[in-house]
Nucleic acid binder design. Structure first.
Lengths: 227, 227
DNA sequence: GGTCTTTTGGTCCAGATTGGACAAAAGATT
DNA sequence: AATCTTTTGTCCAATCTGGACCAAAAGACC
């Protein structure tokens, strides 16, 4: 935490108080919510403070300014997300590539459900070029892409994933799972889909897997990948 | 046009001047751009007027207020979009269902490229419940869904599209084609994808079709659909 | 061409909101 | 009790908010 929050200055001579941690957390949660709803420009620091139930000058105190708060909020969602994906990859090291990717998709869907802001903030910032987008790409999106694309290419070689530009494939998977959950408010009314139900969640993951990883693993995949 | 723009009042005794049409058009284009970038709340009428190169009180004159301008702008993108889809459906009446759906996907991708705001505005409004979202669903999204879902279900029955909740399928197709193009700014930097190139556009449509309509049409589909 | 309407330019407004500064009070930690 | 951290309350100057208003210009119609 002290990594991404900008505290007054260099050496905290005395240990951080508990109430301060709580305040920062409340502000981060509120910031994530507000920024994901109205974007950076459309969100005021006062709005965030209000949602957090905190006096607004505390933002300046804890995060220096609006921009730093945005970055802290982005780190907050993306770090937890990256962690859950990396964990999934790590835990399933021994499984076959298809199973590993499937588990990753499940993890993605689950996280996107618990934190729809993940996708919303991304779309908000990607809507026009700006320094925050560059930062987001450099710091979070590119690493995520790099960490996943290899597995995907392998699956294509094995005939499990369809051929074609892997980057395209990657992003379609991303949108079909994560993007869908960000549209929750709309889907219910326009298509009768309730993304809040666990069944829908499961159905989403299963459909993504069925569609994007339609092939079966060949019996000799161990040899193939070794060669 | 006079359908969605709110002119000063009831009966236009004299016909609308050409320059007025031009101004409205400039304002609509600017509004689409601004709203898609910063959302409704994050956009000021002055910003729109500036982008349009027009004095801001003209917004009041032509569209009464910000809300009406937003609606006019939404109508502007969605009507053109719906038209291009309906046209595609109409033109290919005689083709087989898979070909018709494929053409629709092409049309979708093409339109989403020329007007990325289509998806952006949707996401902007779907980010939290609000009256504009309700209006958008009622007026544009639901009809689009209803018009397409039948064809999709038919394709599922024919074994061309994968089984599962058709609403889910519909929205995944929507996101994989349209949503992808809305992220143009991001994709280039994070994945090396250039959505501006016609090749990428073609690749997107082809991949969507390959992935979501993997089956071949059975030879006896005419009988089947008649039965 | 003259008249009448539509459209535009320019200005103004009163009020709200913006991000942020600051001193003083309150609370924790040592 | 002394010292540091955190919170509170107040203030600010700047900007922006949507919208009202009217005089001038431009176009449509006769």
């Amino acid at each position: 935490m002290s990594d991404e929050t900008v505290l007054p200055s260099d050496p905290p001579a005395r240990k951080q108080q508990q109430r301060s941690v709580v305040t920062q957390q409340k502000l981060l949660d509120a910031a994530v919510e507000a920024f994901s709803e109205n974007g950076f420009k459309g969100t005021s620091t006062r709005d965030i403070a209000e949602r957090a139930g905190v006096h607004h000058p505390l933002i300046t105190y804890h995060f220096k300014n609006k921009d730093q708060l945005w970055r802290a909020a982005a780190n907050y969602i993306f770090k937890a997300f990256t962690r859950s994906l990396a964990q999934s990859l790590e835990q399933n090291k021994e499984m076959c590539p298809k199973a590993r990717m499937s588990e990753m998709i499940y993890a993605y869907v689950r996280y996107a459900k618990s934190q729809p802001a993940l996708h919303k903030v991304m779309v908000q910032e990607a809507s026009y070029p700006n320094p925050r987008l560059d930062w987001l790409i450099e710091r979070h999106l590119k690493p995520l892409f790099d960490a996943t694309i290899g597995l995907l290419v392998e699956l294509q070689k094995l005939g499990v994933a369809p051929p074609g530009n892997p980057a395209l494939l990657f992003n379609m998977i991303r949108l079909s799972s994560g993007g869908l959950l960000a549209l929750g408010n709309e889907l219910k009314a326009s298509s009768g889909l309730d993304v809040d139900s666990p069944e829908t969640l499961k159905a989403i993951a299963e459909m993504v897997i069925a569609v994007f990883l339609p092939g079966e693993m060949p019996d000799d995949w161990k040899q193939k990948s070794a060669a």
